[in-house]
Design a protein around this nucleic acid. Structure first.
Length: 403
DNA sequence: TCTGGGGTCCTAGGACCC
DNA sequence: TCTGGGGTCCTAGGACCC
């Protein structure tokens, strides 16, 4: 079973503010440079879509009401929804803040049928939270995801094994989760437009064109997906932790950029400490005014997790970059992660720094991000992250004592 | 009044080692 | 009068998902 909330952010806003109900609403980011994150069903007929610029959206729908995203609220509602799913099976794979896969094959006998489970979930989400969802039920995840997309809003769609071939025969390949714009174009150039054609195409030729994903594409065309539903405990550990931000204006001064890097390093460090991870690789990402984007990474001599160390590494990389244009976006990412089960650092100075970090983290956890911060951050304008916190994962990240 | 932010996975080339 | 082969690690970029 795949469950997809309908126009999630917009629907949550309409639910919490009755004045927005029945009106075209779009949820947007909190900063000046932003896009449409979600459009309500009233806004969609005008052509307002996720990813559009505000300018474009207002052109298409002048009466559109723009609401800045309230990520804490969406995270909270999401965790309520995920909790409901848990009542029907322990095998819940959280796919995003508003989507999940449920393996209900073990629960069918208890609840009677998959249709009954779907209707119970729908009615609980509607009465408790005032929200609707679309549900797809199928023999595997690929088909369940496809099915949930077929009826919106508030849909329920079954795909039976016997009807799979008929369903896929004329279905455009781009409808499958995992086949995006570029792959569609490349497959089209081979004369493949539908899933039926993809499934019949010689695997050897697909492999020659697409490498390791060639055989997978072939299976997808046939509606085959062997991947299991993974509960949070079964999911692989997080591999990278990073933050990026588009600046309010393009920036050229290196000292200004360094201050933004300090802010990003602090956000990354805090999250690394919360997950109890350290990382050996730091990656700096830059986007120029013309939108061209590139990254540079450097391996550290030891795995790090202090904001200060991450900051120093990011600045060192930045110092090696010759700026060709004003900078539009900055990103800092920590990877090659080690999960720390031992909290004790080796050396006394590390111990002091770690205690300092831990104390600051505690204060900021309780009173909000950047309540206490490095003095140089005071000069950073437009501070604060607008990240969807991972709290909506039923048990948080693996190996972490939070929640 | 141009174009967000969080990730995962794959590829390809080069350095390096035996 | 010519320069192997296998493997790992690192780097940078790109496709894809929400």
């Amino acid at each position: 079973m795949h469950i997809d909330m309908n126009a999630f952010f917009a629907a949550v806003e309409q639910q919490s503010n009755p004045a927005l109900r029945g009106k075209p609403v779009a949820v947007v980011g909190n900063q000046k440079r932003t896009i449409i994150l979600t459009a309500s069903y009233e806004a969609r007929p005008c052509g307002v879509k996720t990813g559009m610029t505000l300018y474009e959206a207002r052109q298409k729908c002048p009466q559109l009401q723009l609401v800045p995203a309230n990520n804490r609220l969406y995270t909270y509602v999401s965790s309520q929804i995920m909790r409901i799913f848990q009542d029907y099976t322990p095998l819940v794979e959280v796919f995003s803040v508003d989507e999940a896969f449920l393996d209900i094959s073990g629960s069918l006998r208890y609840f009677g049928s998959s249709e009954r489970i779907a209707n119970l979930i729908k009615s609980r989400i509607r009465t408790r939270l005032g929200l609707t969802c679309s549900i797809g039920i199928a023999p595997n995840k690929l088909l369940a995801k496809l099915a949930s997309d077929m009826r919106k809003p508030d849909g329920l769609t079954f795909v039976q094994l016997e009807t799979v071939a008929d369903l896929l025969e004329d279905l455009p390949i781009g409808e499958l989760c995992g086949i995006g714009r570029k792959t569609t174009r490349k497959l089209n150039s081979l004369g493949i437009y539908t899933c039926g054609e993809l499934g019949r195409f010689p695997v050897t030729k697909l492999k020659a064109q697409f490498g390791i994903i060639g055989p997978r594409l072939s299976l997808m065309g046939q509606g085959i997906d062997p991947s299991p539903v993974l509960s949070p405990e079964q999911e692989p550990e997080v591999k990278t932790v990073g933050h990026s931000m588009t600046l309010q204006q393009d920036v050229s001064a290196r000292e200004d950029i360094a201050r933004f890097l300090l802010q990003l390093a602090e956000m990354v460090g805090r999250r690394a400490r919360r997950y109890a991870v350290s990382g050996r690789t730091v990656t700096l990402t830059l986007r120029y005014a013309d939108f061209s984007t590139f990254s540079r990474q450097q391996i550290q001599s030891t795995a790090i997790f202090c904001s200060e160390d991450i900051y120093r590494a990011a600045v060192k990389i930045f110092d090696s970059v010759f700026l060709l244009q004003p900078v539009r976006l900055l990103g800092v990412r920590l990877s090659s992660l080690l999960y720390r089960d031992c909290q004790l650092p080796l050396f006394e100075p590390d111990l002091r720094r770690e205690r300092l970090s831990a104390s600051l983290d505690q204060i900021n956890d309780r009173h909000g991000e950047f309540t206490v911060m490095s003095g140089s951050l005071l000069e950073v304008k437009g501070k604060g992250s607008h990240v969807i916190s991972p709290a909506w994962r039923p048990r948080g990240i693996r190996n972490v004592g939070v929640q």
